[in-house]
């Protein structure tokens, strides 16, 4: 079901991957480092299938945001190739809504930049706001919204790009636990309704397990793919489900092992 929705999103060419990351490395120039370069990502190969939900998990500073920026096309890899079906949508930890526009206008700007004719924008923005259950928020200013509402408007704006791939960089990390939990359920619902592919970055193991079909664990310094889990637990999942807890415990153990390696040298 998700696969067909993704294909009907527009392109006539057969889409086999929403994102294809092949042997990607990234280094940054750092004055003190050996060779003047710090290797942040090393030989990352990762595919995201159409309609798939993948979470990218790793300790802080391991290069998750760097990888997401590369996939978003905001930066270029030092080696390797990245292919995506169209320009991906990107959501940040901070809502990144423009404070000079209302919630609705933020979404309409995304529609406008995508080339949606003026007459259709208002209706489409209303529809997207309704999708994130904020149908009365069109005329609200960003500062009048709560943290959770801002992230939902930001999600609606990202969806307004009508991209087949949604990149999310710890979008719920700054929210309180209850709000975050609610937004997990919303995101899962919207993902199922729209069939969009999601590459979701987090350092929160339970969040990764709750949302994903596949969890990819990144090691630190340099960031490499340490291990991948396929999550077979049926949705809807709850954060306190024993199956979620069990897999989270296993992944946490692995993540701790990765982190401990750095304490030894």
């Amino acid at each position: 079901m998700t696969t067909t929705t993704a294909e009907s999103a527009g392109d006539t060419t057969a889409v086999t991957h929403a994102a294809r990351v092949a042997h990607v490395s990234k280094s940054f120039p750092v004055p003190g480092a050996p060779g003047g370069q710090q290797l942040v990502l090393d030989d990352i190969t990762l595919d995201v299938a159409p309609g798939e939900f993948v979470t990218l998990l790793g300790a802080s500073g391991c290069g998750k945001s760097t990888l997401l920026n590369l996939v978003a096309g905001l930066d270029a890899p030092s080696a390797g190739t990245i292919g995506t079906a169209g320009r991906p949508a990107l959501m940040f930890q901070e809502h990144a809504l423009f404070p000079w526009l209302t919630a609705g206008r933020n979404i309409e700007l995304a529609l406008r930049l995508r080339g949606v004719p003026k007459a259709e924008r208002r209706g489409e923005a209303e529809r997207l706001l309704e999708l994130v259950r904020l149908k009365d928020a069109h005329g609200k200013r960003v500062h009048e919204l709560s943290g959770g509402m801002r992230q939902r408007v930001a999600l609606a704006r990202a969806l307004a790009q009508d991209s087949r791939l949604l990149l999310m960089d710890e979008p719920f990390a700054a929210l309180d636990a209850i709000t975050r939990d609610v937004l997990h359920d919303e995101l899962t619902r919207i993902w199922q309704e729209t069939g969009v592919s999601v590459l979701f970055v987090t350092h929160n193991v339970r969040e990764a397990v709750k949302l994903a079909q596949r969890v990819v664990l990144l090691s630190s310094r340099p960031g490499r793919i340490a291990r991948t889990w396929t999550v077979g637990i049926p949705q809807p999942r709850r954060i306190e489900d024993s199956a979620v807890a069990e897999l989270s415990a296993e992944i946490t153990e692995e993540l701790r092992g990765e982190i401990r390696r750095h304490g030894r040298d």
Partner: peptide, 29 residues
């Protein structure tokens, strides 16, 4: 519970109380 096969078709989520919970959070915050 690490499954070995991937679930490509996610089952439908049904969380009936979600909208109400969310409305409450929005109102409080």
């Amino acid at each position: 519970m690490a499954g070995t096969e991937s679930t490509t078709t996610p089952p439908k989520a049904d969380v009936p109380d979600l909208a109400g919970l969310e409305a409450g959070l929005d109102a409080l915050d």
